[in-house]
Write a protein that binds this DNA or RNA. Structure first.
Length: 562
RNA sequence: UGCCGGGUCGUCUAAUGGUAGGACUACGCCCUUUGGAGGCGUCUGCAGAGGUUCGAAUCCUCUCCCGGCAGCCA
């Protein structure tokens, strides 16, 4: 067996039931040693993290088994689809690193072939034109317990069907006036087999085909044909299509054409968010969020903007696994994946989000101190940060009356300034509203970071910026979009009622260390003791960058005190 | 109610007739110039009842529970 056909290629990957099927297919030589998968989005919305799971699954399999992976737009419904979505989907898939090479296809390019196949089925007496209205068809379909009734048009002559179908295509009929149906079995316990509709009339402009067509194939009719045309081996889809598999198989069998295997897996659900495109569209159109790429959305473009990395998302897709049982993944797993990646790769910086002024009364010079860019990776080097008499620290790093266990600055207390000296708080300055506005401190020259001339130990180390050199920035903190784990589970209340009013907090007066001056949109950093941040690509301007918080650092102190 | 699919730690996921394991979370300890990271440890699970078997999460039967399906959406 040549290397290309060696399933051992994927031996070190975690196995799931789909990879096991493929391993078995290699053993039986079912596909002649080929693996060819595809991701078939409908361009009617932006990709979300659930799609990312599917992309990673399909592309990962193709890659590991030395097969191919296609991107195919399932653009069979002109009333919902737009070019904007096509563009965003291509961008997102490329960003995720799923390489479809030159294989980007459109179902609408197959319409002529599909039409011919439909004619073939009509000629075989396996499809017919029906004049029934949508409502009548529904009534004839039956219910969960009752079988369906056959349409009076079911046994039309083949010639008549051919003529009517051709005239449907020519545009002689209005929307809904006629449909083409497969002649299968109105008694089937599976609704999908009760003479499903293959074509409906839609007089609408298609984003790629213009007005060339006014009949459009339905999913059930089209999907297997698309897979067949592209010689897909494993047509992987989500669980809700399980009931459609008999129909997928029926069409391909009747046509006697290349027949891929449909395999279903459980879609991704995440708690504290919603995942359906319809609901995401509702959030966008209702202006609950600032577009599909609002950093609070679970879309790929939002995650990108928020600072997530393709590596982290791919790793997440791997650790959640693939199975057939319905599951809701804890958002903590996603956050773990992003922290793990950024911890290793994001350079550190100091940023004060809510500044409190500190004056070191016994310090009158300026020094350049060394700071490590990433303690996890010393190859990332060191940088200089200026230390001056006037500084800013975080408001939350000082408490006049500290709770037990508080490690930071208190009146008369000592704390280390990261990469600098240990300081002691000598005096607390307040305004007339009794709010702390300034701290007067003294520093101990023997405690300079790295010199080791003092054995003095303090409990806490806090971050700071120099008042003279800090850069102003806007920082945006994001919290989960919903206040409950399953926003769409309530039958009484609409999911928007569970929107978290505090999901976005804007801090316009943050101060960041001067080394961040040259950061560019998309750059990622760890702001020490805060979390990971990414320069926003939408609202940043040169004079004032905007930083999106990707994810917080784990905070065992904050957690304990909540 | 008919058909299809599915039930393993709090969550996700392995074990394919032979010691129920991993990851996340939580909690504790150690370490720490990020209350980060890291290290160590703890807690917690086969939906239920029968059966087959030397041996069952795995095979069989019944029960219970959950999801999907009655678009000219995908």
């Amino acid at each position: 067996m040549e290397d290309k056909n060696n399933p051992e290629e994927s031996a070190n990957k975690p196995k799931n039931f789909i990879r096991e099927i493929i391993d078995e297919d290699f053993k039986t030589n079912k596909w002649g040693g080929n693996v060819h998968t595809r991701f078939p989005p409908e361009p009617n919305g932006y990709l979300h993290i659930g799609h990312a799971k599917s992309i990673c699954l399909n592309y990962g399999i193709a890659k590991d088994y030395k097969g191919k992976f296609n991107l195919r737009f399932d653009d069979t419904n002109p009333s919902k689809e737009e070019q904007e979505y096509v563009d965003s989907i291509i961008e997102d898939i490329k960003w995720l690193g799923a390489d479809f090479e030159d294989r980007i296809f459109y179902a609408s390019d197959y319409f002529e072939q599909m039409y011919n196949w439909a004619v073939e089925l009509i000629k075989k007496g396996k499809a017919y034109v029906d004049d029934l209205s949508a409502e009548e068809i529904r009534e004839h379909r039956g219910t969960l317990t009752e079988t369906g009734k056959e349409s009076p048009n079911r046994n039309r002559a083949i010639e008549e069907n051919l003529d009517l179908f051709e005239r449907m295509r020519k545009g002689e009929f209005k929307n809904g006036e006629k449909v083409l149906r497969a002649k299968i079995d109105m008694m089937s316990p599976n609704f999908n087999m009760r003479d499903p509709i293959m074509y409906r009339i839609v007089h609408a402009e298609h984003h790629r085909q213009g007005n060339k067509w006014c009949i459009y194939p339905t999913y059930d009719w089209a999907h297997g044909l698309e897979d067949s045309i592209e010689k897909i081996t494993h047509s992987i889809c989500t669980l809700e299509f399980e009931n459609h598999r008999p129909l997928y198989d029926w069409f391909l069998n009747e046509l006697g054409t290349y027949h891929p295997q449909q395999i279903e897996f459980a879609r991704l659900n995440l708690n504290y968010t919603v995942m359906s495109k319809r609901k995401l569209l509702q959030l966008v159109q209702g202006k609950y969020v600032d577009g599909w790429d609002d950093p609070r959305m679970p879309t790929v473009s939002a995650f990108r903007r928020r600072g997530y990395t393709p590596d982290a998302i791919r790793n997440f897709a791997e650790i959640i696994g693939v199975a057939k049982r319905d599951a809701t993944t804890d958002i903590a797993l996603l956050e773990y994946a992003i922290r793990e990646d950024l911890n290793k790769h994001a350079p550190r910086a100091m940023a004060v989000l809510r500044p409190l002024k500190v004056i070191i009364t016994n310090y009158n010079i300026t020094e350049e101190l060394d700071a490590v860019n990433n303690p996890e990776d010393i190859s990332m080097g060191v940088r200089k940060i200026p230390f001056t008499r006037e500084l800013f620290i975080e408001q939350t790093d000082f408490m006049e009356i500290p709770p037990k266990g508080y490690h930071r600055l208190t009146p008369g207390g000592e704390v280390r300034l990261r990469y600098a000296y240990i300081i002691k708080c000598e005096e607390v300055i307040k305004n007339d509203k009794e709010e702390v506005v300034e701290l007067h401190c003294t520093y101990d020259p023997e405690t300079r970071s790295g010199t080791g001339t003092s054995n003095k130990k303090v409990k806490g180390t806090i971050h700071w910026v120099s008042a003279d050199n800090a850069i102003e920035a806007e920082v945006r903190l994001y919290d989960r979009l919903f206040t409950v784990e399953a926003p769409d589970a309530d039958k009484e209340k609409d999911f928007v009622e569970f929107l978290n009013p505090n999901s976005l907090e804007i801090l316009p007066g943050a101060l960041i260390e001067p080394s961040l001056k040259n950061s560019k949109p998309g750059d990622r950093f760890q702001f020490e003791r805060h979390g990971y941040f990414c320069v926003d690509t939408k609202f940043s301007i040169d004079e004032k960058p905007v930083f999106n918080r990707t994810v917080t650092l784990k905070d065992s102190w904050g957690k304990k005190n909540n």
